[in-house]
């Protein structure tokens, strides 16, 4: 039994390590300083980079997070701390369904809701789509982490005359925070790599743009565009983009972990 487990664990880890090293190997060779500072150049010209896509991805994730994370956490709190009512069961069911919806469908939804009325692709629409994508992950992990907090802690807090809402905010949520942060990171990592919902929302942009109501470049879409092109130079750029994308997810993970490291690490 143990050997089976070890075998399965190896099978799970090997592709991950392989992807990581392959991407690093293929990406690093065409990675240079320009890649982080220059705009993409049309085919035929040497050099050029992806600075607009890198910044674009950060902005899009930021927008998505701003929208998706609070909603996700509050929904998770509602489902966990006020469970039992019909409403909370309905909400739980809907978020479960939402987590299974293909991301391209969410893209179409944002397209219909924001792109069509605005009459143009925009970063706003992309951020909205990524936000929707984050909600179920954040909700689910918040709910599960809150449920791991022992009931006796809530009782202890309430017994001190602390209101239910403050108890949730200051005691329960804080105790579960490291688990919830992990969930948020998962959501961010997933959103950072999403291409489908951005294809017809933020669309992509070869130029520098940080206006939220304009089309915005993003790493995954840029990778997609480069990868389907017939040019070797662009293929190399796509690898470099993939490497940068992985690095961003990795760094975000690291930073958030360090910054929010719990003073007393007494959490679940």
């Amino acid at each position: 039994m143990l050997s089976l487990c070890i075998l399965a664990a190896t099978l799970a880890v090997v592709p991950l390590i392989y992807i990581f090293f392959y991407t690093t190997g293929a990406g690093l060779t065409s990675l240079n300083f320009d890649f982080f500072t220059a705009l993409p150049k049309p085919f035929g010209e040497e050099g050029g980079g992806m600075v607009n896509a890198i910044v674009g991805t950060i902005i899009l994730i930021g927008l998505g997070g701003l929208f998706g994370i609070p909603i996700g956490i509050l929904t998770g709190i509602y489902v966990s701390e006020y469970s039992g009512s019909l409403m909370s069961n309905v909400v739980k069911f809907i978020t479960d369904v939402l987590s299974g919806i293909p991301s391209i469908v969410i893209g179409i939804f944002a397209y219909g809701l924001i792109v069509l009325p605005m009459q143009r692709f925009s970063a706003l629409a992309g951020g909205f789509a990524l936000g929707i994508l984050m909600i179920p992950t954040v909700t689910r992990i918040t709910e599960e982490m809150l449920k791991l907090v022992p009931h006796t802690l809530r009782e202890a807090s309430l017994a001190l005359g602390i209101s239910r809402w403050k108890t949730t905010l200051r005691i329960t949520l804080r105790t579960a925070s490291s688990g919830i942060i992990t969930g948020i990171l998962l959501a961010i990592a997933r959103a950072a790599g999403e291409t489908a919902p951005l294809l017809f929302t933020s669309f992509g942009n070869s130029f520098w743009s940080t206006s939220l109501d304009q089309p915005m470049a993003s790493i995954p879409v840029q990778i997609f565009n480069y990868a389907i092109s017939p040019y070797d130079e662009w293929h190399r750029k796509a690898w470099a983009g993939a490497f940068v994308l992985i690095s961003i997810v990795f760094i975000v993970n690291l930073i958030v972990r360090v910054v929010t490291r719990n003073k007393y690490s007494g959490s679940v």
């Binding site: 006796t152 802690l153 009782e155 202890a156 807090s157 005691i171 105790t175 007393y264 959490s267």
Partner: peptide
């Protein structure tokens, strides 16, 4: 309460 239940994060 029966079991000591200090707030673990405080």
């Amino acid at each position: 309460f029966q079991k000591p239940n200090p707030f673990p994060t405080l």
